[in-house]
Design a protein around this nucleic acid. Sequence first.
DNA 1: CCCAGAATTAGATGTTCATCTAAATATCTG
DNA 2: CAGATATTTAGATGAACATCTAATTCTGGG
Lengths: 90, 90
Amino acid sequence: MDLIFKVLADKSRRKILEVLKEKDMTVGEIAKHFTFTGATLSHHLDILKKTRLVVSERKGQYVKYSLNTSVFEEMIALFLNIFQRKGENL
Amino acid sequence: MDLIFKVLADKSRRKILEVLKEKDMTVGEIAKHFTFTGATLSHHLDILKKTRLVVSERKGQYVKYSLNTSVFEEMIALFLNIFQRKGENL
DNA sequence: CCCAGAATTAGATGTTCATCTAAATATCTG
DNA sequence: CAGATATTTAGATGAACATCTAATTCTGGG
């Protein structure tokens, strides 16, 4: 929980999620949307994996990343829970 | 936007919001829920004010803090927007 | 007017974290 | 197998940030 918020605190990671909403992609494809190095991207992907927001699968020479929809939805529920005020129904 | 996420990345600040959901409180009352110093609390409240998530009003010797409901709701909308997948309707 | 209590500000410190370069690992192709 | 390309890991660096102590500001009551 605490971790989820830390993960989303970084703009680049949020953008990675945005980008993966479009379609599953290899690291190289994702990298085209950013200016930082592959090492940095790898680091961010690792963090995203640790919260299970994304999953990865090796496809031969490449590694393909995709969103983990179910965790996404759990997260929305968490947010709503936190932000919802007492007695209020959104 | 970026700021909102940074603000929420800190556990103490999220707890402050939780606490203020209950009712409006003075700094001293809020402080009872935490172990860190008043200076630190003041710092967190300042950050929360900058994102307009809370508002403050001096009441004589005290300063009363309360949630800013409208910003809260904007925030929920932002989150849903980010997490919503293409073509998906929650 | 001065004191006490409430809150904020200033300045310092240690930690966390995003980023980089360089090196390592994995896989494919000739 | 050797070289090329893709990705990850290791280690270092600098910036951002949570926290603290001390000092300051603000307000109400004697």
